[in-house]
Write a protein that binds this DNA or RNA. Structure first.
Lengths: 182, 182
DNA sequence: TCGAATCTTGAGTGTTCATTCTAATTTCAA
DNA sequence: TTGAAATTAGAATGAACACTCAAGATTCGA
């Protein structure tokens, strides 16, 4: 059971963590820097998070929850693509943190890798459902292939956009639909 | 002017660095671990590399040079795709290091970011030339769009393959050609 | 209002790590 | 063979950093 002030501190910590990791990377971000930006001291940090890793994973968890709009109701493929582009464009810091953890963590830590693969599988499922409505003619093999290609391309394009802010992510992402999801 | 033993030590260091970073990540890899695996002591490391970062960038440079086959003569799109898949499959450690540096470094260090964007531009050029021969009908805009989509998708698929060794990278990569480069 | 739970402070701890330095050894061109 | 340059060993250094702790302050339900 947390007090209100504790919850506020917690969200200030997460905000500071997200922005700092987005700028300086996972290891470039120190507890001291997080605390300075959140306006607290180390003891308060450890009152709310067990470790730096836990704070970063909390940020990633939040990003994962925000990248998918309304998981309850079905969507069009184009709507899913737009939602993803919106996420990258408007929550750039969260997108950067997600990407860094997915790559560094995914390639070195089995737990994070499994988490990323599960997230990917859920996303693929969602896209497959949407695509099935638009292209009922495709075999499940062809569907799988299209979805993997589309998700991989979206991720690759998003990475390019994060490297180069002038890159037209939305244009290229919508181009994918023209090329592959006629 | 280096002596033969120095050059041999240098390549042992690079090999150790590549494999360790592939396993443990950029910051998980220590100078001591590199030296242990290379069978040397710290003094020798610093006789040949100015810093840990320099050794890692040397590994990345080597990977960049190996990912492109014969930059002199022109290639078919399919050949370029095969070459990329071959690189990821046979030089998995190098591919992992490249990816980690591209993401963590690219998103936090301006020099590395520029280097990655230049590498991408050169690759895109290469793919565009190959695609132009197969599809002379496409406008230069459509060409650009196809190439960006193809490269992004290849990168995304490669990342997935590195996360999940059972993922059929070559199958999906060739699927891209069927979908988009008819 | 009371007081148990929660929160904050801020100094402190211990470790890990990249990097340096010096002296001894080895290489290899002339 | 010689000796200047390159290589190596290995201990030492110093900084950075994640994390702990005890004591006081604050919160808020009962």
């Amino acid at each position: 059971m947390r007090y209100r002030v504790g919850l506020e501190t917690r969200s200030r910590i997460m905000e500071a963590t997200r922005d700092l990791v987005a700028e300086a990377g996972l290891e470039g971000t120190t507890i001291k820097a997080i605390c300075d930006r959140a306006g607290i001291l180390a003891g308060s940090f450890y009152n709310l998070f067990a470790s730096k890793e836990e704070a970063i994973l909390a940020v990633v968890g939040e990003a994962i929850r925000e990248v998918e709009p309304d998981p309850s109701q079905p969507s069009e493929v184009a709507a899913l693509v737009h939602a993803y582009v919106d996420f990258v464009e408007t929550q750039e810091a969260a997108a950067r943190v997600y990407l860094m953890v997915a790559v560094t963590g995914g390639l070195t830590d089995p737990d994070i890798r499994d988490r990323m693969l599960r997230h990917h599988a859920a996303r693929a499922e969602r896209f497959a459902d949407a695509l099935a409505r638009r292209r009922p003619d495709l075999s499940s093999e062809a569907m799988r292939s299209r979805v993997e290609a589309l998700l991989a391309a979206l991720n690759g394009l998003a990475f390019h956009r994060l490297l180069d802010p002038t890159f037209d992510l939305r244009g290229h992402a919508l181009g994918l639909l023209e090329i592959g999801a006629r």
